[in-house]
């Protein structure tokens, strides 16, 4: 049992970090970024190239990954999302743009990095073993700690920095923020870059444990979408709760349902549908209208 809970917390921390990026982008631009999973995969591949291929230190690799993805996010926002949001009247256009971007990134990753599963050398060897009740490799513990540090860092940043305050104002009310002198275009871009960066960092963290491959992008987008909707769209604590809930559900169901075949996600999706029928706005979402 302890093992299952520890696994859940480990998964949940990663998931929460992915969901944070998605929910940030959603809160700022009202865009559901279907390319989020692809950004995560891209981050994994960048880390793989720098740490695994070139043999640079891991910290540097993670830093470069964050910068690369932030640049990708900023470029995508400035040249793709901003013009389309300005010109189109219906939300569906941005959804389609995000899907198209997802296809595009998939293709770029395929062309640049190939379709093989890639992994990197372990960061630390050794396994933490508490009386055979909890068994956890040290590198997983390290990644978990890094993910939690990132989440805390992000929340502190949003709470106390000037940029964070501007982003929160923007999420609360775009027009009012503009009237108070917040440069909406600039902070929209910053927010998108930050969201993409979070996705990339998770990719960089997880590549050391599970490796990356091209096919992870789509399912990750869907999971991130679920977590955000469970917690409530555009609410930061909601995304963290959503991530933790999904992580725990996955780890508990995987161990209890293993004998019935591969139906973990079947149960998760069914409970999601029931949950959304009862609470259509998620745990902490604002009601409509």
């Amino acid at each position: 049992m302890e093992q299952i809970l520890v696994n859940g917390a480990y998964l949940g921390a990663q998931y929460a970090l992915i969901a944070l990026g998605l929910t940030l982008i959603f809160a700022l631009m009202n865009v559901m970024n279907f390319a989020h999973g692809q950004m995560y995969v891209l981050g994994g591949f960048v880390t793989y190239t720098i740490y695994g291929q070139l043999g640079m230190p891991y910290a540097l690799a993670l830093f470069v990954t964050a910068i690369t993805l932030a640049v990708v996010g900023a470029v995508v926002e400035k040249f793709l999302f901003r013009p389309v949001i300005k010109r189109s009247q219906r939300d569906e256009s941005t959804m389609l743009l995000a899907a198209g971007l997802g296809f595009f990134l998939d293709a770029v990753i395929l062309l640049v990095f190939g379709e093989k599963q890639r992994g990197v050398p372990k960061l630390i060897n050794g396994v933490f073993n508490w009386d055979f009740r909890v068994i956890m490799p040290y590198d997983r513990i390290l990644i978990f700690a890094l993910a939690v540090a990132c989440i805390i860092g992000f929340m502190l940043f949003m709470q106390y920095s000037k940029t964070g305050r501007a982003l929160r104002a923007l999420a609360q009310d775009r027009d009012a923020a503009q009237l108070m002198g917040v440069d909406v275009d600039r902070y929209g871009m910053t927010g998108f870059a930050l969201g993409a960066m979070l996705a990339g960092i998770v990719g960089g963290l997880l590549v050391t444990i599970t490796g990356v491959n091209l096919g992870m992008g789509g399912p990750t987008s869907t999971k991130a979408f679920m977590m955000v909707m469970i917690g409530g769209a555009g609410v930061i604590p909601g995304a963290i709760f959503g991530g933790l809930i999904l992580g725990f559900m996955e780890s508990i169901l995987l161990s209890t349902l293993a004998s019935y075949g591969d139906i973990t996600y079947l149960v998760i999706f069914v409970s999601l549908m029931i949950f959304l029928a009862i609470r259509p706005n998620g745990l902490m979402g604002k009601p409509w209208g």
Binding site: L97, G100, G102, F103, F104, A107, L110, L111
Partner: peptide
């Protein structure tokens, strides 16, 4: 996939 993405974008 590239063509899908490019056409859409």
């Amino acid at each position: 996939m590239l063509s899908y993405g490019l056409v859409l974008i």
